[in-house]
Design a protein around this nucleic acid. Structure first.
Length: 755
DNA sequence: CCAAAGATTGTCACA
DNA sequence: CAATCTTTGG
């Protein structure tokens, strides 16, 4: 019990309260992971069998890390028997084990959201509906939220309220699409992410004996990041812990940032109502950040109405104020941030990996990357297009998927004509129609392509049959070989590898390399799991891979690089130096959120998460204009900037970084935005780099009403107003000689005289 | 059936 | 802008 001495009072109480419902409200940086780890260790040391502990985490990586930490306290053997993982991975395992009860085969495919969207798109077209009204994204979102609220397609269609809502939204057919989608998934032996929860709930609901089994198995249930659970997840943990009531949830309502994908902050806010016996512990001491940072964060989150009462404090030193950087464009913002990192790094002996640049949207990484590259600062971008979503990776995975599960319709559609083998869209359509007519899976159509009346010509039918035989051949290989050998065999014998190899464009070479990387990953899996029964076979790899994300890949984290990620992805992490960039209205808070109080509060919580990632120094930045859809648009500073108590902010750099931009614009050498002076009290040294213009093309967005300008033909004039967007931006100018004129800024070649 | 040109659309976060 | 979808001509 040596470790109990490392804990403060509420932490120690939380660790030692092991029976009955417990809620741990863990403020940012309050040692949550430590408490979770020790609590599990404490359970085990008090005689609880690790087999009886279920711990649900937000990411696979979190589960893995926690397991390692627990292993250090209680030993590897004990730790290995813990049941730990994400909701999705834990429940997909249970569903595979209990597959007979739900009528699915054990080898069901997990459709990712692209697969779901494609299927929805197909169904909408097949039903002859207006695809403007029934956009895949919208329909998918509707189906997903229904599933997250435990409403299956039958209940959906019977629910009067929902039907009315859909009718009002002029989308009355959503229920029918949902129903067809469900049937189609079933026929394809596939589940989407939401099904993993919904079907688990239904399994437990319909089969009490199964529920009972797992209730006894998991006598102690712990849930991390409870603020981000949705109704389905909550319902399931309630089912599981109903018997023993040993349920411990850990979270921070102030960090609930996933409502957009169905997370219900009400789960944590109302938890006590469901468990009156609840013991609540609040971890309020922050060990991570300086006083300035903690106070700034508190001043922000205080603006939210909907929250549990708590006061986060720290005994750390005051630290520096939060630097605020103002830039003219997004590119300039990138330069300032990069230079700032350069300066901090030199003056504070900081390493690259001490820095993080956090942004609201992934696209913002580009300007940052360019600037970092220019200063030779190594970085790593997290998130963005996932490795597993890349075309070439998805292609090969679909081959593997089809080998493991013939019925996988989305996989079949994707690869039946890639590499091209003369089976085009019309043929595919005929196959799908036949599968609907005979109520058989698409694969079964292929099996009897020669006898069914599909309208496919014999010559094409022959090609289809050849494809079918190729896959059947692969299947034999899968059964006989380990995962790596089977995957390699399929990659080359499908022609896919050759197709990529023949593409000598840089992208083609890259794709080829990516496939090699995937195969290396499979190799690693094969080597690592040879001691497991059947663990080296492809089907097991496929089960794993569907729920793995890039964040789970433990890529050489040791490399000394600056971290670039979205704020969402940064949850749970900490960095000595943090830059929160793009603090502009309509970007952060996002324009989609500003019309609803709840959504705005979520954005504010997101801002809170961003602030609380920083340990030593926090920097905010914003640009006055940035490119969006190829147009330079004007941006106002974020309202969040004004919500931070100004006692904790340092605006001195915000002013000094402004250059007389417009005044310099006319010089033929181009722009030099890359040198600025830094106040004496700052850590930063003056940094100057030579670099080309940060603005691409004409900065037409920078003209404003009131400017005095010079035109080559019309002479001097004053801008009255600006209309239109992007290339069509037009200025009404009152010229001294020729009176008012309307000119396209793109062509006018105006020079600014004075503003 | 296919490649290339043209049109459209979207970008908010993710298991 | 860039990725994706649609149209068009061979």
């Amino acid at each position: 019990m040596e470790y109990l001495k490392q804990l403060n009072e509420p932490q120690a109480l939380a660790v030692q309260t092991i029976e009955g419902p417990v809620m741990i409200i863990a403020g940012a940086g309050s040692g949550k992971t430590r408490v979770l780890t020790y609590r599990i260790a404490y359970l085990i040391e008090h005689g609880v069998d690790p087999f009886n502990i279920l711990a649900l985490t937000f990411t696979n990586k979190a589960a893995k890390e926690m397991k390692e930490r627990i292993a250090k306290v209680v030993g590897t053997t004990e730790a290995r028997n813990l049941y730990m993982g994400t909701f999705h991975s834990v429940f997909s395992k249970i569903l595979r084990a209990e597959h007979e009860k739900i009528g699915f085969p054990a080898n069901f495919t997990i459709y990712d959201s692209d697969d779901s969207k494609n299927l929805i798109k197909t169904i909408v077209i097949e039903m002859g509906l207006d695809d403007k009204m029934y956009k895949p994204n919208i329909v998918q979102h509707k189906i997903s939220s229904a599933k997250n609220s435990l409403i299956n397609s039958i209940a959906y269609k019977m629910n009067q309220e929902i039907q009315m809502d859909d009718l009002e939204a002029r989308r009355p057919k959503i229920g029918s699409i949902y129903e067809k989608y469900t049937n189609r998934c079933f026929k394809a032996s596939a589940m989407d992410f939401d099904d993993l929860l919904l079907k688990t709930y239904e399994l437990f609901h319909k089969h009490p004996e199964v529920l009972h089994k797992y209730q006894h198995r998991f006598k102690f249930v712990m849930v991390d990041e409870f603020q981000d659970t949705n109704s389905a997840q909550y319902a399931i943990i309630k089912q599981l812990s109903a018997l023993y009531q040993n349920i411990c949830v850990v979270g921070d309502d102030a960090q609930s940032i996933y409502a957009f994908r169905g997370a219900d902050i009400g789960n944590i806010l109302n938890f006590k109502k469901d468990y009156p016996e609840l013991k609540t512990y609040k971890l309020e001491q922050n060990y991570r950040s300086t006083k300035n940072i903690v106070s700034a964060a508190n001043s922000v989150i205080g603006k939210n109405k909907n929250q549990l009462e708590k006061s986060v404090w720290t005994s750390n030193s005051d630290g520096n104020k939060i630097q605020v950087i103002k830039a003219i464009t997004d590119n300039e913002e990138g330069n300032f941030v990069a230079q700032s990192i350069f300066g901090y790094r030199q003056n504070n002996q900081a390493a690259n990996k001490d820095f993080a640049i956090l942004y609201r949207t992934n696209i913002q990484s580009r300007a940052m990357e360019e600037a970092l590259r220019r200063l030779n600062i190594p970085y790593r971008v997290y998130g963005g297009l996932s490795f597993y979503q890349r075309r070439e990776i998805k292609d090969i995975l679909c081959y593997l998927r089809l080998c493991v599960n013939h019925n996988d319709e989305e996989a079949l559609k994707r690869i039946i004509n890639y590499p091209t083998r003369g089976i085009g869209k019309s043929t595919l359509d005929k196959i799908i129609i036949a599968s609907a007519e005979h109520d058989i899976s698409v694969w079964e159509v292929l099996e009897s392509i020669k006898t069914l009346d599909t309208g496919i010509s014999p010559s094409v039918a022959k090609k289809v049959d050849e494809f079918k035989q190729m896959i059947t051949g692969f299947e034999t290989v899968v059964q006989q070989k380990n995962a790596f050998d089977a995957a390699s065999f399929i990659a080359s014998n499908s022609g896919l590898l050759k197709d990529l190899f023949n593409d000598k464009t840089p992208e083609g070479v890259n794709r080829y390399d990516n496939v090699q990387e995937l195969l290396n990953g499979i190799k690693e899996f094969t080597v690592n799991s040879t001691n497991h029964k059947d663990g080296n076979a492809l089907p097991r790899y496929m089960e794993d891979i569907a729920l793995i994300t890039d964040a789970d890949k433990d890529e050489d984290d040791e490399k000394d690089r600056v971290t670039l990620m979205t704020i969402h992805a940064s949850k749970g992490l900490e960095f000595p130096y943090v830059f929160v960039v793009g603090l502009e209205e309509n970007l952060f808070p996002s324009q989609l959120s500003i019309n609803s109080r709840d959504e705005l509060e979520e954005e504010r919580r997101l801002f809170y998460v961003a602030i609380t990632r920083a340990m030593i120094q926090l920097t905010f930045s914003y640009a006055q204009s940035r490119f969006k859809y190829g147009n330079l648009i004007h941006s106002d500073p974020s309202r969040f900037l004004h919500e931070v108590d100004e006692n904790y902010l340092d605006f001195s750099n915000a002013g000094s970084m402004q250059r007389t931009f417009l005044g310099k614009k006319t010089e033929s050498e181009g722009l030099n935005l890359n040198s600025y002076s830094i106040p004496a009290h700052s850590h930063l040294k003056k940094v100057s780099i030579a670099s080309k213009s940060t603005i691409k093309g004409d900065p037409v967005g920078l003209f404003k009403a009131g400017l005095e300008v010079q035109h080559a033909r019309f002479g001097k004039g004053k801008i009255v107003s600006i209309d239109g967007n992007g290339d069509n931006k037009m200025a009404t100018i009152q010229f001294e000689k020729d009176g008012p004129k309307k000119l396209l800024l793109k062509f006018a070649k105006l020079q600014v005289i004075r503003d």
